[in-house]
């Protein structure tokens, strides 16, 4: 396909590890047995990503997200299949590919631990051959969106996690890469820092048309950043579409929480329980929760029905959240025995 910055075709990655056994006897047994175990981390994954896209790459723990990122960044070699980034095979042209990409691993840091933060950037400036002009411009940009100035001359090991993450993001972007891989960039961060990181990612995407691939467990990241999401489970791709399509496909479930003015009597309760049209009903302390599918009945109709039966004090409408949708998809794929 043309116009794709990243192109994966039937990529598969297997790991071979020594087999371990449980318990004390197992620990000893492991010393003598030469048995190997084959684990498939990524199983026949294909997708293409266009320039300037922000793609959320999600899946439960151990689904193979990081492994895919590592193959696209040239660290790991796929067992089979092909993977192209900017027209290069990353693992064959590791150094050349590295110039085009920026990587942030949320759980690791590439900053120089014992030295002031600014030293890391001077090293990176040399490594990537960033010109003085570009360097100054980008440092200004980071100063604006990531506010690095306040701790620029602090030793890296004294930085807080939030500061470190912001600094790591800047480090990955110093050479203005065409593609940015973010492996859980908001892990362990507070709401304010998360917001700042998201803002920075969006700003970078808009200013430089950087293609961003983002893995995360925080679905707010996805909701705020990504137009497209790819979901994988147990190494297989199980969903790939735009966020709005996902919501259309799965987001039709809706719930309304009512609070009664006066508790309904027996006849009213019977009517409420039996509204028909696949409307679920669950009583709570001072009111009830009503479930339905928007495909079958509109919100206004449901409210009208309920208010026709009993007098209502308060109403809360809740659309299905992305979290619920994704939970659904994970569970369905497990249920289908994939």
């Amino acid at each position: 396909m043309d116009g794709n910055v990243i192109e994966l075709r039937n990529v598969r990655k297997e790991f071979v590890t020594a087999k371990h056994y449980p318990g004390w006897s197992g620990a000893v047994k492991g010393l003598f047995s030469g048995e190997k175990e084959k684990k498939v981390a990524v199983d026949d994954i294909s997708f293409g990503i266009k320039e300037g896209e922000i793609v959320g790459y999600i899946g439960s723990n151990g689904a193979g997200k990081s492994t895919t990122i590592k193959m696209m960044s040239g660290i790991l070699t796929p067992t089979s299949g092909s993977c192209m980034v900017n027209g290069l095979e990353p693992y064959r042209n590791r150094k050349k590919n590295a110039k085009n990409i920026g990587v942030v691993f949320g759980q690791r840091t590439q900053l120089w631990w014992d030295l002031p933060l600014s030293e890391t950037y001077t090293v990176l400036k040399e490594i990537y051959g960033v010109s003085d002009g570009d360097y100054a411009e980008r440092m200004n940009f980071f100063e604006d969106v990531l506010e690095l100035g306040e701790f620029m001359h602090n030793t890296v090991r004294t930085l807080s996690l939030g500061q470190r993450m912001r600094a790591d993001l800047a480090a990955a972007l110093l050479h203005n890469p065409k593609v940015l891989f973010l492996d859980e960039p908001t892990i362990g961060l507070d709401v304010v820092v998360k917001d700042r990181i998201r803002l920075a990612i969006r700003e970078i995407n808009e200013t430089y048309h950087t293609t961003v691939i983002l893995t995360t467990h925080d679905l707010n990241d996805i909701e705020e950043l990504c137009r497209r999401i790819i979901i994988i489970d147990a190494g297989k791709k199980i969903y790939d579409s735009t966020l709005s399509q996902l919501k259309k496909d799965y987001g039709f479930r809706c719930s309304i929480t009512f609070e009664w003015k006066d508790m309904p009597d027996e006849a009213q309760t019977r009517m409420l329980r039996d509204m028909g049209g696949n409307i679920g009903y669950r009583e709570s302390d001072k009111g009830a929760k009503v479930y339905f599918s928007k495909k079958e009945i509109s919100v206004a109709q449901v409210i009208g029905k309920v208010m026709g039966i009993v007098e209502v004090k308060d109403i809360q409408i809740k659309e299905t959240e992305l979290t619920d949708i994704v939970k659904d998809i994970y569970q369905n794929s497990a249920g289908m025995g994939v």
Binding site: K70, G74, I75, A98, I101, R108, T109, I127
Partner: peptide, 12 residues
């Protein structure tokens, strides 16, 4: 696992 960070740089 920090070898990963050394391998994503254009450095030998």
């Amino acid at each position: 696992g920090s070898v990963a960070l050394n391998l994503v740089k254009p450095v030998n």
